[in-house]
């Protein structure tokens, strides 16, 4: 499938993947993140069973301290 991940085209062999699986494949091991799928906020506890499909727009924003 092809999706948009953080504003970039991203292709995976699988036809669908959970958000947790995408983070595993991409080796995202950030402590504090915000996940938005097609403009819907996704709660942490929903990462394992929220499915990302062809054409979806996924934002995984890594939060950093400082301001």
């Amino acid at each position: 499938m092809k999706i948009i991940l953080n504003n970039r085209d991203q292709e995976f062999d699988e036809q669908q993947l959970s958000i947790s699986k995408i983070m595993e494949i991409k080796k995202f091991s950030y402590q504090k993140i915000i996940v938005k799928l097609n403009n819907t906020f996704i709660e942490k506890e929903d990462y394992p069973h929220t499915i990302v499909k062809e054409g979806d727009n996924l934002m995984i924003l890594h939060l950093l301290a400082g301001g």
Partner: peptide, 28 residues
């Protein structure tokens, strides 16, 4: 400054005000 607070406001704004723009500062 703190990530807990950043998480709180980003989450709250996306959920409560989906039509409002939120401008964040990350990585300074």
């Amino acid at each position: 400054d703190k990530t807990d607070a950043k998480e709180m406001i980003i989450k709250t704004v996306i959920k409560t005000f989906p039509d409002k723009y939120l401008v964040c500062g990350i990585g300074i």
